[in-house]
Amino acid sequence: MLKRVHFPSSLLPYLLVAPQVLITLIFFIWPASQALWQSMLIEDAFGLSTEFVWFENFQALMDDPLYLATFKRTAFFSLAVAFVSMSFSLILAGFADRVIRGATAYRTLLIWPYAIAPVLAGALWVFMFNPTLGIVAYGLEFLGYEWNHKVNGGQAMALVIMAAAWKQVAYNFLFYLAAMQSIPKSVVEAAAIDGAGPMKRFWTIIFPLISPTTFFLLVINMVYAFFDTFGIIHAVTQGGPANATTILVYKVFNDGFVGLDLGGSAAQSVILMALVIAMTVVQFRFIERKVEY
């Protein structure tokens, strides 16, 4: 026999969740459904003539080899940003964890870039690498390497990856450092007594123990690279040259706000939405299980 406590049903719980539900409705469900509706329309910019076309905008995207290329490019970009920024912050955190004197100063300095807005971060890198005025471009030329990311798509991609990864290093660093400091000292010290060097200790003890953090950061970094890098790309390359740095979000913006193709742009954002949902589900259901806690 199952015992249950029955409370008299009241309005209070509904009232308590109402603000959250309302926020979700206004800021997510409503715009999302608008996007869904818009994605099935072909409309002129002013909204004066509208034609309902079902899935034709999606069909057009699927037939567009450039759109499919944007998918591959976005995957490459996101993985590269995640890898570069996570590995750098891992190294930095590894060192910062061992620092005894002036630890706070190091930490503060390493966290600074996170406070910079994406557009400003982009502007910073653009100045350093400007083929005519940039100090780094000047240095590279001195070394005999010709830098012109306005023509060379590979260099442009490298530049936005660096800028995007650099900005994220601080965030990752913070999490890695916290994770490393939560590892009991005794474990590491025991290994040291047994004769394990710093590298050995790192790979056999620290790295496996912080794997939940690594997984968490992977998700965060992928999402960051997918969506938050818009400002950097807008400031650095505007998607060029020849689309070499146009990732999915940038194409949504470009087609919708520059090209005024609202239907096509909405269709892309719907696909993007589905993609993020799928990505999150896959990551949490399958990858998370393999992580050692």
Binding site: K150, V151, P241, A242, D255, G259, D261
Partner: peptide, 14 residues
């Protein structure tokens, strides 16, 4: 759609 067409031309020229 000439804003976009110009972009295309830019891309192809690049």
């Amino acid at each position: 759609n000439f804003v976009q067409i110009r972009d295309i031309i830019n891309e192809e020229m690049e």
